[in-house]
Design a protein around this nucleic acid. Structure first.
Length: 782
RNA sequence: GGGCUUGUGGCCUAGUGGUUAUGGCGUCCGCCUUACACGCGGGAGGUCCCCAGUUCGAAUCUGGGCAGGCCCACCA
């Protein structure tokens, strides 16, 4: 008999041919007219961060693709956009490096243009990788970039909406400031260096008792900004003092407060809190509601609050103050220490923390509603909800949304040149206030006719947090929005729960009053062979391109889905990918074997062995379906592998061969039914090989238009209790032949089978070449 | 330092109170048995991190400890 499937190996080169087929059939294009409920996916738009792309990220996206394919095979019209995130700091840094320029030294217009262009090659590279593993996202109408005018328009439009609702206000925010380049810098641009510095022990005085209290500091020049003095509540040297006032060496009076931030063992155990030496100071100022007093200006010089030191730079001021305090006997001692100092990557100087005016979005008053929403969303896996709840709990201030950067969505505000009153334009356009003329004639407050545009951009999470609204058509396609919102599922990585997920829920609630997602799916991340997170600095990032080229998209996908359960980290290992490839070959050869026999769609009476294997199939399908229901692909990948290899191929195929070659209707029906079920259950995980088998044997249309199989009613569920005995019996007979040095296809004179296997006797007899078969209590072989 | 989380044969993994703990990788032995040598068959290999408790019974529940991972903060 000639098999319809000729080759005896799954050839990954067939994947290209399948991709062409999908393209011709327009399988990936979302059609809003299809009459099925919409399953919308807020895909994380990948960030083009450089080459190589992280193999863990690649695996992450292949799983997200499987989320989409699961939706399709569960009977939904799947809206699966393809987005690329292109805003923010990494773009700027990449552009500076690539073109060997400095953001602050060339005209903004030119820099922004270079940014927009610089990522095109990286974007193309990522899209190519995505397609190499079978990415089924929409590449036409629902393909987007977060730096497109259309997307940025929505960021601004929604900001204006929030502005009009009174949710935006201005306040100062301590910024990381590089006094050399005179720019604020992002946290990511800070590097920590150990620098030798003086730890100065200063004498303060307790006002009520007149006794000295010693305080150690590396920043004596900040004495002008000191607002409190802390000791640890458990510190017995101080905790009996009670409520006291402390007089600083310059005569200011500040409170002495018990606070766990002060470490008993460091310095003298007492710390002064100044605005601002570091972010701990910022936190404590907020917490204790202290009044800030700034003594350093934006040029890195002491201001008028520093009295006679005004005008000196920080270093000079520090030297002078130490000298003076020494003369006045206000210094107890000085130690040289190594101090971990936050430095600016750009100016190569220590950063200063300087408060500047920024716009804020209110969030503190919405924590309760967000907590409620967090509890209403279905999380996959369930335990990841806690990360979000903990984060909501810990939010302690409103969200500062403006950044002093260049490549991002511009803040659409113009200020009156005379009275500085902010003016926000009408929504519906993409505004660039740093170069566009104001859209107002007169200041609504003072009537002045000149305006100056805001030069800042938004925090990139302002863009990212509207992705769900953008893809579901908010403000742009009301018909789609009605069907696609709330968004069915948000797939994402766990490390951005506190940012992307949280901010998306916040923004969407403030704009629509609704809970944005029904499901949130959280994956772990890829780690290297030793269990360490891959990162560029460690040099352990694995390039996905050669791996996919070598093994193909399906093997890559089957590997990562079968590697780790949902939410836990998965290890890269080439051995494991090889074993995934072996399974695909096994599946291919199972299909090749079955392709020898004609397809029979029905059979009246089924033989016991057939009813048995269908029952085992039903079990595997049910468990896999439950796995898909939880978007946990680890379950169907392993369940279907286990069934098709260890039960179906190893035992059933051997048992049924004789009947199959004799064209027994029951056997042919069961073989094809099982194969169809297996490939359908694996189609979302390995879309290429399943498509190829399906098209070769069963249809001209794609398997990805099918739905998951329902339980087969002809199955004999009661026979499952014999599965262990069947496997054990076969094993015993094989072992017997091996021990006697017999070939597996040699004949056995007489075998006594357990009575309960009587129904399977004909199949077992031909499978093991048994001449005389009898039945008894237990197995016996001659 | 704070929070979260994990700890099962050499490696990875299933298993959440009940007889000899699941599967894979690797390893060892034997086989080209007409779907597959990227295969088939057989074997070796485990104090289920440690201690205490609850229970007739614990890998599974409780407490403590140890070790790892992640996120955040970071030493005046």
């Amino acid at each position: 008999m000639e098999p319809k499937i000729k080759e005896n190996r799954w050839n990954k080169d067939i994947e290209a041919e399948i991709k062409k087929f999908w393209l011709e059939k327009k399988l990936n294009d979302f059609d809003p007219k299809i009459d099925k409920p919409v399953f919308s996916i807020d895909t994380p738009p990948p960030y083009p961060s450089g080459k190589p792309w992280h193999i863990g990220a690649t695996a992450h996206y292949s799983m997200i693709d499987t989320v989409a394919r699961t939706g399709r095979m569960s009977g939904f019209n799947v809206l699966f956009p393809t987005g690329i995130d292109r805003n923010g700091l990494p773009v700027e840094l990449y552009t500076e490096k690539k073109n060997n320029i400095s953001m602050h030294k060339i005209p903004r217009e030119e820099f922004v243009k270079l940014c927009a262009e610089s990522l095109d090659d990286l974007e193309a590279y990522m899209i190519e990788i995505m397609q190499s593993f079978g990415w089924s996202g929409d590449m036409k109408k629902f393909r987007y970039r977060t730096d497109s005018p259309e997307y940025r328009k929505l960021t601004q439009e929604t900001f204006i909406e929030l502005w009009n609702k009174g949710l935006i206000y201005e306040d100062t925010r301590p910024n990381n400031y590089d006094i050399k380049t005179r720019t604020t810098i992002a946290d990511a641009e800070i590097e920590y260096q150990d620098i030798q510095t003086k730890l100065v022990y200063l004498k303060f005085r307790i006002k009520e008792t007149g006794r000295d209290i010693i305080i150690a500091t590396t920043r004596p020049e900040l004495i002008f900004s000191c607002a409190a003095v802390l000791y640890n509540p458990s510190d017995e040297r101080y905790n009996k003092l009670g409520k006291k006032t402390v007089v600083t060496p310059i005569g200011d009076e500040v409170p002495l407060i018990a606070h766990p931030y002060a470490k008993v063992e460091f310095g003298s155990g007492v710390v002064m809190i100044c605005s601002y030496g570091d972010y701990a100071d910022v936190r404590i100022f907020r917490e204790l509601k202290l009044k800030e007093k700034i003594c350093i200006d934006e040029n890195g010089r002491m201001n008028k609050n520093a009295g006679k030191y005004a005008g000196l730079n920080i270093k000079e001021a520090r030297e002078e103050i130490i000298k003076e305090f020494k003369n006045e006997n206000k210094v107890d001692k000085i130690e040289e220490i190594m101090h971990r100092t936050p430095m600016s990557e750009r100016g190569k100087c220590p950063i200063e923390i300087i408060p500047m005016k920024e716009w804020y979005l209110k969030q503190m008053e919405f924590k309760d509603v967000l907590r409620k929403f967090a509890n209403e969303i279905k999380f996959h896996p369930e335990d990841k909800r806690q990360i979000l709840l903990d984060w909501i709990e810990s939010v302690s201030m409103d969200w500062p949304i403006t950044r002093r950067r260049f490549y991002g969505t511009e803040v659409p505000i113009w200020y009156c040149k005379k009275c500085n009153t902010p003016h926000v334009p009408k929504p519906g356009k993409y505004y660039q206030p740093w170069k566009d003329a104001a859209t107002f004639k007169k200041c609504e407050k003072c009537g002045n006719e000149e305006f100056v545009g805001d030069s800042r951009t938004f925090d990139t999470w302002m863009d990212s947090s509207i992705s769900a609204l953008f893809i579901s058509g908010y403000k742009r396609d009301e018909e789609l929005f009605a069907k696609a919102f709330p968004v069915t599922i948000r797939p994402q990585a766990k490390e951005i729960i506190r940012t992307w997920l949280y901010y998306t829920m916040l923004r969407t609630y403030l704009l629509t009053g609704k809970n944005v997602f029904k499901h949130v799916w959280v994956s772990g991340h890829g780690v290297d062979e030793h269990g360490v997170k891959m990162s560029k600095s460690l040099g352990n990032v694995v390039d996905p391109v050669p791996v996919i080229e070598k093994y193909g998209g399906d093997a890559f996908r089957f590997w990562n889905m079968s590697e780790a359960t949902l939410g836990s980290d998965f290890r890269y290992s080439e051995d494991k990918i090889q074993s995934a490839q072996k399974f695909l070959t096994k599946l291919w050869n199972i299909s090749r074997f079955i392709s020898m026999f004609p397809v029979k769609k029905t059979a009246k009476e089924l033989q016991p062995a057939d009813r048995w294997v269908l029952a085992e199939l039903n079990k595997a399908v049910a468990k896999s379906a439950a796995g898909y229901g939880d978007f946990n692909f680890f379950v169907p990948a392993n369940e279907m592998k286990q069934f098709s290899w260890n039960i179906f191929a190893d035992h059933y195929l051997e048992m049924v061969k004789a009947r199959a070659y004799n064209n027994d209707l029951s056997a042919l029906y069961t073989l094809h039914y099982c194969l169809q079920s297996i490939i359908k259950m694996l189609a979302p995980i390995s879309p290429f090989i399943t498509e190829k088998v399906w098209l070769s044997l069963y249809s001209k249309e794609s398997i990805h238009l099918e739905e998951f199989p329902k339980p087969n009613k002809k199955a004999g569920e009661e026979l499952c209790k014999l599965t262990d005995l069947i496997i054990k019996t076969n094993s015993e007979i094989w072992k017997f032949k091996k021990e006697k040095g017999l070939a597996l296809n040699s004949e056995l004179k007489k075998v006594i089978l357990p009575e309960s296997l009587r129904d399977f006797s004909e199949d077992l007899k031909s499978m093991h070449r048994i001449t005389t078969l009898e039945f008894g209590k237990e197995l016996s072989i001659e």
